[in-house]
Computed example of a mutant assay.
Amino acid sequence: MNVDLIGAGLVIIGAGIGLGKIGGSAMDAIARQPEAAGKIQTAMIIVAALLEGVAFAALFAV
């Protein structure tokens, strides 16, 4: 069994969990403060893009 593939899989699973938590937390924050929705959404998109970059890097590193 290739250890690199297991590591890449764990990184991708972690990224998926992280994206779910980011989205859920952003929705909670927007529900609490609807007037700050634009700022929250912008921050969420930036963090999600960086997290997806890490996941793609793990895929291509294998």
Rank of each mutant, 00 (worst) to 15 (best):
S25D: 14
L51S: 05
K21S: 07
L5Y: 13
M44W: 01
I12C: 09
I46C: 04
I12G: 01
A29Q: 08
G53D: 08
F56D: 01
M1C: 10
K21C: 01
D4G: 10
A57Q: 02
V3I: 15
I6M: 12
K21H: 09
A36R: 14
L51V: 11
I30Q: 06
G20A: 08
D4W: 04
F56P: 01
V3L: 15
M44D: 02
R32Q: 14
I12R: 10
I45W: 04
A26C: 11
G16Y: 05
L59F: 14
A15W: 02
K21I: 11
I12Y: 03
L50Y: 06
A49P: 01
G23M: 06
A48R: 02
K39A: 14
G18V: 01
P34L: 05
T42Y: 08
E52I: 04
A8F: 05
D4C: 07
G20M: 01
N2H: 10
A8K: 10
A48E: 06
A43K: 13
E35C: 01
G18T: 10
I22L: 13
V47N: 04
A36C: 01
N2D: 15
M27A: 15
Q41C: 00
G9A: 15
G38K: 11
A36I: 01
M44R: 14
M1F: 12
G9K: 05
G38S: 14
P34Y: 05
G53M: 12
G9F: 02
M44L: 13
A36H: 08
A26M: 11
G14K: 05
A31E: 14
S25I: 00
A36Y: 05
G23P: 00
I12M: 15
A43Y: 09
F60M: 13
K39C: 00
V62F: 11
L50I: 12
A37D: 11
F60C: 04
V47R: 09
R32T: 12
L10S: 10
L5S: 13
V62S: 11
I46M: 13
V62E: 10
I13D: 07
L19E: 04
I13H: 08
V11H: 06
G53H: 07
A37K: 14
A29G: 01
I40Q: 05
K21N: 10
Q41P: 00
V11W: 07
I13G: 11
S25C: 01
L51P: 00
I6L: 14
L19V: 03
L19M: 12
Q41K: 14
I17N: 06
L59V: 15
P34M: 04
A55K: 00
Q41Y: 02
I6Y: 05
G53F: 12
G24H: 03
A15T: 14
